[in-house]
Amino acid sequence: MTELLFRADAYARECTATVLSSGPDGVVLNRTVFYPQAGGQPGDTGLLRWSLHGQSGEMAVGNAVKGPGDAVLHQPGDGAALPPVGAEVIAGLDWSRRHRLMRMHTSLHLLCSLIPGAGVTGGQIGADRSRLDFDLAEPPAKDWLSEQLTALAAADHPVGERWISEAELDANPSLVRTLSVQPPRGAGQVRLVRIGAEDDPVDLQPCGGTHVRRTGEIGRVSVTKLENKGRQNRRVYLVLED
């Protein structure tokens, strides 16, 4: 089991940890700041550094993915040395990439708020470009979406979270916007990410990913392309302008 430190603080850039297992499939730590690939958000990249018996080493992390149970596999880059089991390591993120993914992820939630009532049939978060697919006959105009997204970001809305029971989610099915991926169940609770005020949110939906603290961190957003992916499926691409 890996303690997921990003759940408590998405801004934690590094941590000390102990190596529980180590192999070509990945390194498992007892705790980590690395987000494992899930829900359309890529896994984090970065570096593991250690010193043992006077010998220092480092391993480039090419990706982080979910392993057995609650473990996170820190996958080594090509030819990277592996830390020995029991070693204490410093696990550090490629922070500029992670923060950009956080800005992108929050932008996609804002995009959802601009197309109410339409289910999300797919999506992908990228550092350079992201997209969402909507069950929708006709999307709003590209320029209008860009203007509204940038305005919502500039309004500097707070971004927070709270947890509800699975029974509460069942009683409020409209909270779930994604049609292709359902919130993970089995733990008894589901995490909601809220943008805006608690009593009048801009967006509120289940999500396990990492987000910025305030929308002001996002900057300008542009919708670059609208694609027809079927009779009732419209794909919306967006980019950050810095």
Rank of each mutant, 00 (worst) to 15 (best):
T178M: 13
Q182C: 04
L192G: 00
D170C: 00
P184A: 11
D203R: 07
S180E: 13
L169S: 00
S174A: 15
R191W: 11
E198K: 12
V190P: 01
I195A: 06
A167I: 10
E168M: 08
D200S: 14
I195W: 02
L179I: 12
P183F: 08
Q182E: 09
Q189A: 09
D203H: 09
V193E: 02
V176G: 02
T178G: 03
E166Q: 11
V176W: 00
V190Y: 03
N172G: 00
V202P: 05
S174K: 14
L175N: 02
D199L: 11
P206G: 10
V181M: 11
S174H: 12
S165I: 06
D203F: 01
A197F: 10
L204S: 03
A197E: 15
V181E: 13
V193N: 01
T178D: 08
I195P: 03
R177Q: 06
E168Q: 15
E198L: 13
L175R: 01
P173K: 08
I164L: 05
Q205H: 10
A167M: 10
E166T: 07
V190R: 04
L175P: 02
L179P: 03
D200W: 02
G186W: 10
I164Y: 04
I195E: 02
V190S: 03
A171T: 03
G186V: 12
P206K: 13
L192S: 01
V176I: 15
R177N: 01
E198G: 00
E198M: 11
L175I: 06
E168F: 05
T178H: 12
V181F: 11
R194L: 07
S174D: 15
P184R: 11
V181Q: 12
L179T: 14
L204K: 01
S174C: 05
P184G: 07
R185W: 07
E166A: 08
D170H: 01
D200N: 14
G186P: 09
S165H: 05
Q205Y: 03
P184I: 07
D170P: 02
L204D: 01
I195K: 00
L192R: 01
Q189R: 15
L175V: 08
Q205F: 03
D200K: 12
A171G: 10
N172C: 05
P201K: 05
L169Q: 06
E168K: 06
E198T: 12
T178F: 13
R194C: 07
L179C: 12
V193Y: 00
G186E: 07
N172I: 05
R185T: 13
A167W: 09
P184H: 09
P184Y: 04
Q205D: 05
V181W: 03
D200R: 14
E168L: 06
V176P: 01
A197M: 10
R185F: 09
A167S: 15
R194M: 03
R194G: 00
S174E: 15
I164K: 02
D200T: 09
E166C: 10
V193I: 15
L192I: 13
A197W: 11
L169Y: 04
E198D: 13
S165D: 09
L204H: 05
A197G: 05
